[in-house]
């Protein structure tokens, strides 16, 4: 994209249209009136600031700042507390839009690779869809070792008391490492997931076309 066309794209509706087409509930982005109640309602924004809070993301979308929006870590901070949704005076489904944009960025492969939420989400998804059951041990180990073996051991040691407690309470089974529990009809689960992907694809295609 040349500098000139990049400028021409600014404040044009192209990126907004892209978001409307590609992002779940993306057609609500245009309804924002920039009151900021979402950004102010977000507990994680007051824990550690988002780079761009929701209302600002919406303005950036309208301003055509495609790369900045899709590569930011911001929407990955959403914990689905729904404060923003219940308070939004325009009834924007902000939580869903945040997840939608995150998912789209992920789909395009531009999402920040090591953003913890994204990393965990990926791990969880792979873990859960493999056998139809979540293998807690493998999931937490995957998370501990994401920054390498040494860091993983260190992290694991820090949590050892919690782990032992969980084992005692029969909430964690060390033998899960050997494969673990699965659901009864694994083939059925895979078929369901495949069908769900298909439905989603066709819905997106229909939306893009229409």
């Amino acid at each position: 994209m040349s500098a000139n066309t990049a400028m021409a794209e600014k404040y044009r509706n192209n990126f907004l249209k892209e978001i409307e087409e590609q992002v779940e509930m993306g057609d609500w982005v245009k309804m924002c009136m920039q009151c900021g109640v979402c950004s102010g309602s977000c507990p994680t924004n007051f824990q550690s600031a988002w780079e761009h809070p929701p209302q600002e993301l919406f303005m950036m979308i309208r301003a055509g700042k495609r790369e900045e929006v899709l590569t930011t870590t911001s929407m990955w901070n959403c914990t689905s507390c729904y404060n923003c949704i219940v308070r939004c005076p325009r009834k924007l489904p902000i939580t869903h839009i945040m997840h939608g944009i995150a998912e789209y960025a992920h789909r395009l492969g531009v999402a920040p690779k090591m953003q913890p939420t994204r990393f965990f989400s990926g791990l969880f998804w792979k873990n859960a869809t493999k056998t139809g059951r979540v293998n807690e041990l493998k999931l937490s180990m995957g998370l501990y070792f994401k920054n390498g073996f040494g860091a993983g051991v260190k992290e694991g040691m820090k949590m050892k008391d919690v782990a032992l407690g969980l084992i005692k309470a029969k909430r964690l089974n060390p033998f899960e490492i050997l494969g673990g529990h699965t659901c009864k009809d694994q083939k059925g689960i895979q078929a369901m997931l495949k069908k769900a992907y298909e439905i989603e694809r066709s819905r997106k295609a229909a939306k893009t076309a229409g």
Partner: peptide, 8 residues
């Protein structure tokens, strides 16, 4: 509590 949206 809130966010000043002029410049976040």
């Amino acid at each position: 509590w809130g966010v000043n949206t002029e410049g976040y």
